[in-house]
Simulated scan of single mutants.
Amino acid sequence: MEEIVVKSSMHDYTISMGEGIRSQLNGFLKKDYSSILIVTDDKVGNLYLDDVLAGFNLKENIFYTIIKSGEQSKDIDTFYRLHTIALEKGLDRNSLVVALGGGVIGDLAGFVAATFMRGVDYVQMPTTILAHDSSVGGKVAINHAYGKNLIGNFYPPVAVVYDMETLTTLPKEEVRSGYAELVKEALITDQASLNSVLEANLNRLAISQLSIHLNSGIRTKSFIVQQDEKEAGVRKYLNLGHTLGHALESYHGYGKLTHGEAVAIGTLFALHISEDIFTIKLPYEEVYSWMNLNYYPLNANLIEDSDALIKKMKADKKTVDTKIQMVLLESVGKPVNRIVSDEALKDYLHSFSKRLVKA
């Protein structure tokens, strides 16, 4: 089993990665809790909820609730309903919330924990590749109609328990979604990391290869968040590809594109802009070819409404004084923040669209 310790201003926590550890959750808890509420969705719950429950001897204070899977559930209504369930089950300030699922469950249940009775402990139990990113760093949130993750907090878990076996049941679109974040992390790390990730064929992915990439991605993220826990500086670099990515998710409706598929397009867009602004050659073609080989939806029609997308980008959390800030690359491993004007963004969306069509 692999363990990575993340230091936080509130408390340190350990990311434990292994196979078959989902039924050992009780052993990762460092204190006794008055009650435990497991939050999962209808897909993950059918597969793994019983395994997690089997790890507890006393079940009278172990509760669970199952929500509908998908980004649409990360809303204010589901958030409120989970608070109601916690109150009805008698949870108190010494209770624990367990987030069993992907990024949606982690963000949603984490935000419930951050706000229930002004904050209770929670554990992240990620079951997707994508959640390797969202479960680390303590960002918890729900969506607003104006944009993604606009209502939230920085609130670290007390533990992350990552059972690699749960990744073997992922559908292809979820594998693509998760690997988009691994590409992002590799781009802000170094060329060797990027080369390793781009060697992966997602149609015949070995767990051993996935483990290496996940370990590298988690270490990159944990290194950055320990330097900048609340995104005042270098943590913003983790948003490479997310300015356009979040706008695409919001504009097209949550669920049409997975988060990672939208981020993949956003990452190519960031590379496209970076090459022009810094007059350099970046691995745009290599990343595009890998994404195309692995069936990412690199469709120019998705970005044809530039005015609407720019409006969505202005709702991004990184926007300051209505000026859109983007994470760009001066080179692989050297991310920077830059303000890009609306006029320039419109031109870049147009030229990027043409570049996608030609590819």
Rank of each mutant, 00 (worst) to 15 (best):
I4T: 13
K7T: 06
I15R: 05
G18E: 06
E19G: 01
E19K: 15
S23D: 08
L29M: 07
K31R: 15
K31F: 09
S35F: 11
I36L: 07
Y48G: 05
N57W: 00
Y64C: 05
T65P: 02
I67E: 05
K68Y: 11
Q72E: 11
T78V: 07
I85L: 10
I85E: 01
G90E: 13
L100C: 00
V104F: 03
G110L: 05
V112N: 03
T115D: 00
T128D: 08
D133M: 05
V136R: 09
A145K: 14
G147E: 09
I151L: 14
P156D: 03
A159I: 12
T166Y: 07
L167T: 11
T169F: 14
G178V: 04
E185N: 15
I188E: 03
T189M: 13
Q191D: 14
A192W: 00
N195F: 00
V197I: 14
N201R: 09
I207Y: 08
S208H: 13
Q209E: 14
Q209D: 15
G217L: 10
I218W: 11
K221Y: 07
S222F: 07
V225G: 02
V225R: 07
Q226F: 04
K230T: 14
K230E: 14
A247K: 01
A247P: 05
L248Q: 00
L248P: 08
Y254D: 09
H259D: 06
A262E: 10
G266N: 04
S274R: 11
E286Y: 06
P297I: 09
D305K: 00
D307C: 08
L309M: 06
K312S: 02
K312W: 05
M313Y: 06
A315S: 11
T319F: 01
M326P: 09
L328I: 00
P335W: 01
V336A: 03
E343M: 07
F352R: 09
S353H: 15
L356H: 08
K358G: 10
